[in-house]
Structures are given as C-alpha cells and as structure tokens.
Design a protein around this nucleic acid. Structure first.
Lengths: 341, 341
DNA sequence: TATAAACACGAAAACGTTTTCGTATCATAT
DNA sequence: ATATGATACGAAAACGTTTTCGTGTTTATA
C-alpha cells in the first residue's frame, strides 16, 4: 500500500509548518487566502484525509462501538446487528463485530481486544458457556471502570449496566394463552437447558399461562433440548409417544419447524391434531406448510435500543440510573394455530 | 468512564521515566529486578493494558479488516462474515462490519470511513445500486494506492484486485442438467435484473444447459424479478398461466420458496407437476414441504478465502498477481426434484 | 509619529506507545 | 591509577493530528 499523504508532507512541500497546513485545510481565517488556496488544491489532488487513528488518539474518542454476540449466522442476531448499525451510523459511529461462538474463552478474549481503547463502548449478548458457568469477572472489571456497556437478550441481572430484553415471560404467556383459547389441553413446551435465561423465562410464561387457564402442569410435557445433540432425535421423542401433546410451544424457530416436520411425517394434521407455535426471528415460519404461528422478537428494535442506550451513555457522562428496556413481542398468527376443529 | 491508566501515570507514581516503565513491563533486562518488580505489580494491580490506538499509530498497523456488505439479515452474507471472522481472528485480526444497504451513497461513505487508516484492508461485496449505475470510482481510487482489497460474490471484472466468487455458471448448469435429467422439458428461470452479475451468470449456466440438453430456449420462460415490487405477485404470473413450466430454477432461496408455495396453492404436485430448485444459503429449503433441492453456496468458505487473500496481501507486500478464487457450489438434492413420475 | 490592532504564521504540547541512543555510576581488569 | 565494561536508567524521536499561545510584520488610528 502506498503511504498516505500527511500534513507533514504537505507542509514540507510548501515550506510551511504543520499547523499552517492544518489550519488552511480547516479554512481558518488565520491563513492567507493565497496559502490556503494552494494548500487545499494540493491536498485535494493527493486526496488527503486526516488519519483517523491520530484523531482518535488525540480526541480520546474512537466513534466505534463494539458488539460481541454468540453467533452471526442466526436471523435474530443479524437483525440485532442491523438495528445497531443503523442507529449507530446515523450518530456517526461504526460497528465492530466480534463473535464468541458461545465460548467463554473467546468472549473474554474479545473483551480484552475491544476494551483496550479501540471502542467507546460495548454491546454484548452473553455466550452460552459463560452463562452456564456463571463466570462474570470480565463484566465486573468493566463495570468497575464505568465502561459503557449494554447487555441485550441474554443478560445478567447482577451486572449493573443498561439492558435490553424482550418480555419473554409475556411472549410465552401470550402464545400459550392462544393455544389454550383454540382448545389445546395438553400443551408441550420445547425449551432449552435451564441456564439459558431466555429459555427459563419463556418456561415461566408458559407455566403462568397454564395456571391462568386452569390447565394442570404436566412436567412430562416439558422438554429441555440439548443443542449439542441431534435435534430431530430429541424432538421425535416428544411427538412419537403413546399420548402425544395436542399443542406445542417451542422456544425457537428451528425447534418449531422440526416439530412440525416430524408431526406431519407421523401423520398428524396441523393444527387440528397438534397446534404449533415457535418463538421466531427468521423466515422459516413463513415458508413451512402450514406456516407457523410465531412470537416475533423484533431484533432490529432491540439493536436500535441497545445502540441508543449505549451512545447516550457514551456521550452523556453525567451519572444516570441504569435503564432496562423491555420489548414486547407480538404473536403473528399463521396457519399452524388456526382454530382446531 | 474512568480514565485508563497509562505509562505516564505509572512513571509519575515511581518517579521514573516513561521508557523505564515501558521496558519494565516488557521484562527488559535493562531494568533492575527491583524496579521491574514494583512497576509490574503496580501495573497489574491497576490492570494496565497498552492503549491500542497508540500502538496502531506507532506501528502503522491496525490489525483490523473492514467488511462492507449490502445487508446482514441474509443467511449468505452472515455466513460469509462468519468465515471471515474465524480466519481473521486466528490471524490476530478483528473485523469491522459496515452495511451499504444496497445504496451507492452509503457504500461510498463506508469506504471513506474505513480507508482513513482505521483498517488494514477491505473485503467488499458491491451494492446493487452501485452495480446498476456502474459507478466504480471509489474502487479505482483504492486500487491506485495499492490498498489491500478483496471483492467477493458481487464483483467488478475491471477492478484489479483479489476476488472470490462462486461458479455461478457451473452451479446453474448443474442444476438445470438435473432438471433435464428427471424429465423436465419446459424449465423456467426466475432470476434478477441483468445488472446483478450473479443473476446474469446463473442465466448463462441455465442457457448453456438447455443447449447441451437440446432443449429449445423459450424467452417467455425467463422471468426477471424486480426486488422492489411484490414478489408473490410477480412469481404468480409465472405459474398461474395457461401453459405453466414443468420445472423452475430460481436464483435464490426466497424466489424458490415462494414459487413452491404458489404452485402448491394452485394444486400442482411437487415435483411431479413442477420440479423446483433454488440457489440457497439459508435454512428455508430444508423446512419447506416438500423440501427444496438447492444449489449450496458455501458462504463461510468464501469468507475464509477472502480473508486469506486479504491478509496475505496485507502481510506480504511484495508485488504479486491478483488471484481469482472460484468456489464450486454443489447440488443438494431434496424432495422437490425427486424423479418426476 | 507613536501606538494599537489586524494579519499570517510557527512552536510546542498533548494523546500513549516503543525504541534507539546516550550517559552517569559503579565494578572489574590491567 | 586508568581503561573497560556492565548496569540502570533517561531523553528524544516517531506515528499524525489539533489547538493554544506566541511573535514578527503590516496596516490603521490618534
């Protein structure tokens, strides 16, 4: 790469000082029209642009925000990034994306890279492994230094910072209510392991709804999927049983789509034999047959709000209580829960 | 945010010079064991980490690579990012992601932000608007300065830089051959406008296959979708006609999934009445019913290769011919093309 | 004509780091 | 006693920028 042109080189060219060049390029009235003109022409010709590293160092501000997420090949997370990028960009910030791949070690290493002065703040959704083992020291270290930090979706209650979550309890409650309304009696829940906070919150909403609807809770209808094992096999055990459920609430789109596929293969009619709802974020629900009713998560809105909170925190240094924004998911009713005959 | 601790502050604390502190922290033998010990303990206690901006400025190297893509809520692009991030990370680089939203203006503005010294190189897939109007000056400016640049997927032939593409012609050829083999005679193509290079290349492969299979080309079976208008309406006009095609090749997953949905609604049996193949990247094809045969694009591999080319270009400054890596897509056969009865 | 103001520019510090070179102090060898 | 060498540190430049504070020269005012 050719070395970029700098103030120093321009100064040398005209035998003036660096300050003169800097001022000339900023149209300062301190510099004569003549000098200004020739310097600007020269700089323009050589396509001078101030080195942003130098500026960042001088201004003690990078205008970059770091984002650490568990994965990116995931409709929800990519939607969040879109939301973040959009708002950040409108405020003059760029976005640096790092992936933890659900690994604690990589999350910590990302923290370490990003908090060395290369970003003004951090937006994070916690890796599964981190949540599983509850190792939060890297977060506490940031908090101690008042480093601007926003957690979203997968959060830690104990960490004092801004947070954005969706109302998982409410979403699951709404969805389960809907299943009950269309006549379901034996509503299964396909969820994750307990340490995934969103999974256990959705379970809470599910339970709350069962109680509200006076349906007896049957622990045998609650299935905790292990993401590291074969999903089809695990979900098959829910449907291919003597007394299958008449409705399923799945905490994500994939689980729901797989359940649908298996149920159809077993000869069940959807929704008349089994109604299905999934939490969603992607496009799959729209293209299954029947299409899947789903709890929509509004990832872009989450991203936007996280970015708003973070940038506000960065730019307004006055102490301020930490916010917790809660986004309400909505139920998109499709064919998989059209009233059961 | 609390001000971070610096060499200067540590130096002041012990009444030594900055150089001494710097050397002590690097375990230099120039510094006495005693001084070294107390400085390191102090630095450790206050969690000293070198300011990366200062290092980047001094070393004239950021270890960051910039990525500009049209959108991120898109399975293919997020897969590419994953590939890039993974390889880049293994080589000690971070990734800065910017979105052009298919807009020329935003692409240029991203260029401008990223090429001011904040990244060591750029990986780009061109915005639709840029391709449509063939405005490539921002690329030429980079090339002139030998700025490390890799183009992927949507490329420009005229720009002299490293490139990674998939064999679109070959993929479409293979897919169309497959349709011909299972007995299709009237194979429709659902593609994009001509200025999208991948669209026109896939059309080329389609045409090549028709000729190979001695099928007469029928221009009426080639449909160019306008992404800004209603997709369902446009695709309906392909299927809901007096003499519908007996097979469809769609240049992306969404077009294929919509075609499938419409065909089923019209009462066609898939694949016996109409066989369907889509180029793909996402999960939709797996969850439709019947599942969709698809041309798989290996986005992560593309990302990885792009990152390899870029980092090689960054680290080995010796002149070297520009590479063009071509990735072969493979045909994943699913239910939508099981041999037509 | 003396003085004040305007003009046009330069020096230097600051951001935080690394690294080369210089040097004062002390111990050792001749 | 002198030269040599090691030891332990500091000064300063360099990366590229902005900005404050001088300062010398010219112009306007009393």
């Amino acid at each position: 790469m050719k070395p970029r042109i700098t103030l120093k080189k321009i100064a040398k060219e005209f035998g003036v000082s660096i300050s003169t060049v800097s001022k000339a390029l900023k149209d300062s009235h301190e510099i004569s029209e003549e000098t200004r003109g020739k310097i600007k022409a020269f700089a323009d010709y050589y396509n001078y642009k101030p080195n942003s590293l130098a500026l960042q160092l001088r201004n003690q501000k990078t205008s970059v925000i770091g984002v650490i997420i568990p994965e990116i090949v995931h409709h929800f997370f990519s939607t969040v990034i879109q939301g973040i990028e959009q708002y950040a960009n409108s405020k003059g910030y760029s976005v640096m994306v790092c992936l933890s791949n659900e690994s604690y070690e990589k999350e910590v290493s990302n923290f370490s890279v990003l908090t060395n002065g290369s970003v003004d703040g951090l937006i994070v959704s916690i890796a599964r492994e981190t949540q599983e083992n509850q190792m939060y020291n890297h977060f506490n270290a940031l908090i101690k230094d008042d480093f601007p930090l926003v957690l979203f979706d997968r959060i830690i209650d104990d960490v004092q910072c801004d947070k954005v979550i969706i109302d998982d309890i409410g979403g699951a409650f709404k969805a389960t209510n809907h299943l009950a309304e269309i006549g379901a009696k034996r509503i299964a829940l396909i969820t994750t392991q307990d340490y995934i906070t969103v999974g256990s919150l959705r379970k809470e909403g599910y339970l709350k709804s069962l109680i509200t609807n006076k349906i007896v809770v049957d622990e045998n209808l609650i299935y905790k999927i292990n993401d590291n094992e074969d999903l089809y096999e695990q979900i098959e055990k829910i449907i291919n049983v003597p007394n299958p459920p008449d409705a399923i609430l799945a905490v994500n789109e994939i689980y729901a789509a797989i359940a649908l596929k298996i149920a159809k293969k077993r000869g069940f009619l959807i929704p008349s034999d089994i109604a299905i709802i999934g939490f969603t974020s992607g496009l799959i629900s729209e293209f299954t047959d029947p299409s899947l009713t789903s709890v929509e998560q509004h990832g872009d809105l989450m991203g936007r709000q996280a970015a708003e909170l973070l940038i506000d925190r960065i730019e307004n240094t006055a102490p301020k209580e930490f916010q917790k924004e809660v986004i309400s998911p909505n139920l998109k009713i499709r064919e998989s829960t059209l009233s059961m005959s």
